[in-house]
Structures are given as structure tokens and as C-alpha cells.
Amino acid sequence: MIRTENLHKSFGDNHVLKGVSAEFHAGKPNLIIGSSGAGKTVLLKLLIGLFRPSEGAVFYGDTNLFSLDDKDIRSIRMKVGMLFQGNALFDSMTVGENIRFPMDMFTRLSLKDKNRRVDECLEMVNMEGINDRYPSEVSGGMQKRVGIARAMVLEPKYLFCDEPNSGLDPQTSILIDELICDLTNRNNITTVINTHDMNSVMGIGDNILLLKNGKVAWTGDKSQVLESDNKVLEDFIFASPFLRRLREDALKQRQGG
């Protein structure tokens, strides 16, 4: 489990996070949602330790990430996988080399074993046989899957996904969500997903944290979204008239049923 306590983060005069306390549980997807500028990415980067907080703490189990020195932070990061919004695949390496990179860096496995693990990871994301292709030679959705495969290669205990659905069509988005959800459940990983995709919220939102102006505006799960009377949540999730009508219909059906 990952826990934050009263997290504050400022950049000069810009106070981005204003006392965020939250818990992210193992074995189910934890979603951070909110409009642009709400502080989602900053929170995610604080959770990984890419930023240091102005105030507050991030706990991995009982260990405060920011009480550790650089070397110990790196040892925690070796248990972390991350899927970046832009995938961050090394474009001078093939897909196979990208996935093998963490193993090359941190394991003493033979090349044969490493390549076998690469094949396993590609199979896990249904991308067999693209080892020798370069990231620029595969589609955006395939790059996301390769990013997930690379994040999973060292069997992480924590998985962070920054906007995993950005730039993808709705069908591919759902496939990526299902894949992340499946890997999380199967490997009992603590997964934190930063998104503003409504399909993800309603599909895999087992623990949702809504941010507004750097503060936690609402927490709950997907089953509570429809009936919540939280104004911030309502304005964010059901922003379009179409979704608002769908919600009203769903609520009427429930009341009728």
C-alpha cells in the first residue's frame, strides 16, 4: 500500500498541491482523476519521488520515501514500474531491447533467459513477435502495450500509469484498461493510474481520488459515482449533456427497479 500524508507542493508562488492525504491499495486499480491543472501529474511524480514535496510525506508500507537517501530511493524504485503518457520508449533501441533494458541493468540473467522473459512480457500484453521492431514502427496502442511490458519486466510491486489512454481510440483504451486491471489483480500490485478518461473511471475505478485545485474533492469507487451528490464530481464526470442524460436515465431505472 502507498499512503500520502498532508502533501503540499509549490513551484515558486504556484501552490499546486494543498494537503493531499490518500491511500492507494494493493490488488486493485487506484485512479487519480481531475481536470487539467488539478495537480494529478504532480501528485504522481511525488508518489514516485521525481519531485520532493514542500511539506508532507509519502509512505511505501511504513517507509517514508523522502526520509531515504538517493541510494535507498533507487532501491525502492526497482520495485516500481511506470507507464508514461508519451510511453518514453528509447527510440534508438528495438522493442525487445527496450523491455530487456531494466534486466540488463539490474540482473545477472543470461541473454537467453532475458530474451525468454522479454517474450513472456510481450505475450502478457498480446504483442508477440515484435521484438525486432523499433518503437517508431509500431502504432500508439502497441507502444502503450510495450510500455506496460517494460514496466512489468522486473515484476514490480507498484505500477504507475500516467494517462494510459491518451491519444488512443475508445476500443484500444478499454483494452489497455483491462490489461492494466488484469495485471494488477493477477500480481497483487499497487497500481496508481492518472487519468481523465470517463470510460476508465466507470470501468476500472475501484478506488477513485478526485482532485480539484490541488485538494482532494472526493474519494470513492465506480459504484458510488452515479449516486454521489458531490457537486465537483458531478461537474467533472458528467460535464457533457449526453452523459448527464445517461446518468439521469440510469438513476430513473434504478429508482423504478
Binding site: 521525481l50 532501491s75 526497482m78 516500481v80 514500474g81 511506470m82 508514461f84 503518457q85 518514453a88 528509447f90
Partner: peptide, 14 residues
């Protein structure tokens, strides 16, 4: 800029 350095940092690379 392409977040490659962040990706390596998160893997635990110095």
C-alpha cells in the same frame, strides 16, 4: 524532454 531520463530514474538507474 521525451521523459527517457525519468523512465530510467524510475527503473532505479543513476
Amino acid at each position: 524532454q521525451k521523459e527517457h531520463i525519468d523512465a530510467m530514474e524510475i527503473m532505479g538507474v543513476n
